[in-house]
Design a protein around this nucleic acid. Structure first.
Length: 812
RNA sequence: GCCGAAGUGGCGGAACUGGUAGACGCGCUAGAUUCAGGUUCUAGUGGGUGAGAGCCUGUGGGGGUUCGAAUCCCCCCUUCGGCACCA
């Protein structure tokens, strides 16, 4: 479906005379190939290249118009060497760096797990409890571009709103202030971030994340064991349930024994460690204002901490003792020193200004966006071009030495850090700096790196001196139409945007954004069939009478769900192509729903598309003798005057051309484009039956319409169109034939049907010459029998005329 | 909880900027073709009522704006998607 959508656009634009770059390539590194190696003993390279061959053959059978001379594979050294080259350039600019970070570790398999391999906190293969393990890992500094990535979400009108919203949420910008709370009896201070500086006078306690580095340092000796055991308890909970379920945990905390000072008014407040404070956001410390934050409120009530009201709703006064929930809206500041009486919305800026003047704090911006961890302890990926030298540390491989080739002779045991650990020749290396012995980095890159710039490579896939040719990239880019699933709304599309900007700043091209227009197509779904004892069944496992072939029990026809192997509701295009041909397969996937919606596969729907193509075929095959003459040339004479049926067909042809052109080119609503072609075909069948087409003019008008059908259908069903086009005497391949143009004079109707409403209800219609004046319309309408009946004995108070469309009479 | 998208016949879905709701397809019902079934061709098909022309009603629910609302505004309900202790 994805590729059928793209092919319609490509073929349409080719026929419109555009120079179209319609490429195909393989994002071929990644975990599935490695799992196949572990489970089935096939080398990932072999497995991958076999799959590529299979899929390439299938795409060719579907008749997609790819430029195969531009085919690329991300797992080929001549592609991934440029991944490595880009990595080195980012490293030079400080946009790639290394630091300690946690990975998922299975203590039984002794291996690192990808997030997708952790199911509810357990190893997907052995169900052991996954642990956190600290490793040195490489990161890309995407946060450097947070502001620009956010700004440009306002400058992408060709993107769906929901995708932009998801990206904005992901970047998660919030504006506020950073404030230091000095710790009593210590030189240290707790730095907090807050979006509500207007509530600073209401702080009654402080909470730290369990991982906060100050926790152990500020806790007095007599409380240390209690605090430590709390921290351990929280860490255990997090590893058990997985991050996504942390919010369901009860809010818990423990007093450290330390106190800190509110720099604004000098109050002493107790410092707690709390399980709901995240080390990964802000500073890992939160100033707690129970009166105006619900979370803090609940915690304060549970721990007997005072509540201090500093914002009152307009015209009201809250009571700290009796209030039952935090007041989080705007209001009037109270009990806030010089700011009392000020509107809270104005207080935010005022308090920040005051703190900056006094050196107590400053304006600050926070993002939820994290830097992008790209290290994977995996084999089937692009090697990170770095060696680790005992003397010099991590040293970049010089650009001239690229590519660092992924070795083939490794063992796949499913254990240990990475299969690359077993490749001695690969690991043992020399430090480029000191020439001493060094150990090659065994981590490979996240496959999202591979897919973050491939679209640029398509513009010059054979370039050997750079990732891509600057001139070619300038000619083709940005991508006019990018088509993909909604699952890429954040990660892939954000990484690709980041790469585009980073490569721009490296001077490789002059582009701000990679994708001008984005089409997110829906999923293909199909009903599932379930047996009470044998689970999901494929259609072949269902016996007549809706019974399971294995046990004979009645099956349950379940919900319509995304096609997936595990649910056994997948339809292989190969089988459809064999039974119905590629054109039917394509047509069905384009007709049954607009591209962005989910599509339900039904056998009946496929039959419908097949039937339609048969109808088109017979239209030409059964009327060969009528189609022998050339088409009607309507622009030169008025030969159709007085022949309403011929004229109607001529106009229908041009209206269809106009509609289909706009539906494909402007709206990407292929389902309605196809339905318009169907309407024209239906009209031709009726015309053929009712009209004498054996006179010269009739034949010409008939032929004109048939030619339109064949050409308009070409982007959707290229094979049958090609065949029919040849049959009609067309010479060039149909995809090189100019797209038909609607004759504007044929689009203009001479007569229009005007709807007559009385008090807003349709009561009659009148047929009039187009563009009649209001006076002319009024005259005809008032003479209309039905109108006369409805207005008899009543006053026409108002006469509204919308030209060529509707008349509304208000009568009383 | 927050953000986003969407609710239209038996089903998938049309309806461009507010102007004949249900195009097109599936399914169903008739008729023609056929020994018969399938295929193919033709006609009909939102609901109610009526012999009929027609009339009433109808786009998740309630209110509003308007000569006129599937479309715009407010409130509510449902479904889907994303994010989620974000300080």
């Amino acid at each position: 479906r994805n590729y059928s959508i793209g092919d319609v656009i490509a073929r349409f634009l080719m026929m419109k005379g555009k120079n179209v770059l319609h490429p195909m390539g393989w994002d071929a590194f990644g975990l599935p190939a490695e799992n196949a190696a572990i489970e089935r003993g096939i080398h990932p390279a072999k497995w991958t290249y076999e799959n590529i061959d299979y899929m390439r053959a299938q795409l060719k059978r579907m008749g997609f118009s790819y430029d195969w001379t531009r085919e690329i594979s991300t797992c080929a050294p001549d592609y991934y060497r440029w991944n490595q080259w880009i990595f080195l350039k980012l490293y030079e600019k400080g946009l790639a760096y290394k630091r300690l970070s946690t990975v998922n570790w299975c203590p039984r398999c002794l291996t690192v797990l990808a997030n997708e391999q952790v199911e509810a906190g357990l190893c997907w293969r052995c169900d052991a409890m996954v642990e956190a393990k600290e490793l040195e890992q490489w990161f890309f500094r995407i946060t450097e571009y947070a502001e620009e990535l956010l700004d440009y979400t306002e400058k992408l009108p060709g993107w769906p709103e929901r995708v932009l919203t998801m990206q904005r949420n992901w970047i998660g910008k919030s504006v506020g202030a950073e404030v230091d709370f000095p710790i009593e009896g210590s030189k240290e201070a707790i730095r907090i971030f807050t979006t509500r500086p207007d509530t600073l006078y209401g702080v009654t306690f402080m909470s730290l994340a369990p991982e906060h580095p100050l926790v152990e340092r500020i806790t007095p000796a007599d409380r240390l064991s209690e605090v430590k055991s709390f921290v351990e308890e929280v860490k255990r909970e997090k590893s058990r349930v997985g991050v996504e379920e942390v919010d369901k945990l009860e809010k818990k905390g423990v007093f450290t024994g330390a106190r800190c000072i509110n720099p604004l008014d000098g109050t002493r407040v107790p410092v707690y460690v709390a399980n709901f404070v995240l080390m990964g956001y802000g500073t890992g410390a939160v100033m707690a204002v129970p009166a105006h934050d619900q979370r803090d409120f609940e915690f304060a009530r549970a721990h007997g901490i005072p509540v201090k009201v500093v914002i009152n709703p307009p015209g009201e006064k809250l009571d700290a003792e009796t209030m039952e929930a935090a007041y989080t809206d705007e209001g009037v500041m109270a009990d806030s020193g010089p700011f009392s009486g000020m509107k809270s919305s104005e207080g935010i800026a005022s308090v920040i200004g005051h703190m900056e003047k006094e050196g107590l704090g400053k304006r600050s911006v926070n993002y939820k966006l994290r830097d992008w961890g790209i290290s994977r302890q995996r084999y089937w990926g692009c090697p990170i071009p770095v060696v680790n030298c005992a003397r010099c540390g991590a040293v970049a491989v010089p650009c001239e030495s690229l590519p660092v080739i992924l070795p083939e002779n490794v063992r796949f045991t499913g254990r240990g850090l990475s299969p690359l650990e077993s490749a001695e020749d690969f690991i043992n290396s020399e430090c480029p700096k000191c020439k001493g012995p060094a150990r090659r980095e065994t981590d490979t890159m996240d496959t999202f790196v591979d897919s973050s710039w491939y679209f640029l490579r398509y513009t010059s896939p054979a370039e050997e001196s750079a990732p891509f040719d600057k001139h070619d990239a300038g000619y083709w880019m940005p991508v006019d139409r990018y088509i993909g699933g909604i699952e890429h709304a954040v990660l892939h599309l954000l990484y690709a945007r980041f790469f585009t900007k980073a490569l721009r700043d490296l001077g490789l091209h002059g582009l701000d954004e990679p994708f001008q227009n984005l089409l997110t197509q829906g999923m293909v779904c199909k009903e599932t069939v379930k047996c009470p004892t044998h689970g999901f069944l494929s259609p072949a496992e269902v016996a007549p009478g809706a019974r399971c072939v294995h046990c004979g029990l009645a099956v349950d026809v379940g919900a319509v769900e995304k096609m997936s192997k595990s649910k056994k509701n997948v339809v292989d295009p190969d089988n459809l192509i064999e039974k119905y041909g590629a054109d039917t397969t394509r047509l069905f996937s384009l007709f049954a729903a607009p591209p962005e919606r989910d599509l339900e596969y039904t056998a009946e729907g496929v039959e419908g598309s097949y039937r339609f193509l048969g109808r088109v075929w017979r239209l030409v095959a059964d009327n060969a003798e009528l189609l022998g003459t050339g088409p009607y040339d309507g622009s030169k004479d008025a030969a159709l005057e007085g022949l309403p049926e011929l004229k109607a067909l001529h106009q229908a042809s041009h209206r269809t051309i106009d509609k289909v052109t706009r539906d494909i080119g402007e709206r990407f609503h292929f389902n309605t484009a196809i339905s318009s072609i169907m309407e024209l075909v239906n009209a031709l069948y009726l015309f053929r039956q009712k009209e004498k087409t054996d006179d010269g003019l009739g034949r010409k008008v008939f032929r004109e319409a048939v030619e339109a059908v064949v050409l308009l259908l070409a982007p959707f069903a290229p094979h049958i169109s090609e065949e029919l086009w040849r049959g009609l005497g067309g010479e060039a391949p149909v995809y090189k034939t100019p797209w038909p143009e609607a004759d504007p004079t044929a689009l203009v109707a001479e007569e229009v049907t005007v709807v007559v409403q009385i008090n807003g209800k349709v009561r009659s219609t009148v047929t009039l010459p187009a563009d009649s004046s209001e006076e002319e319309v009024r005259e005809v309408v008032l003479k209309d029998e039905k109108v006369a009946e409805w207005t008899k004995g009543r006053d026409v108070k108002k006469f509204i005329y919308v030209p060529n469309r509707v008349v509304n009479l208000v009568v009383a």
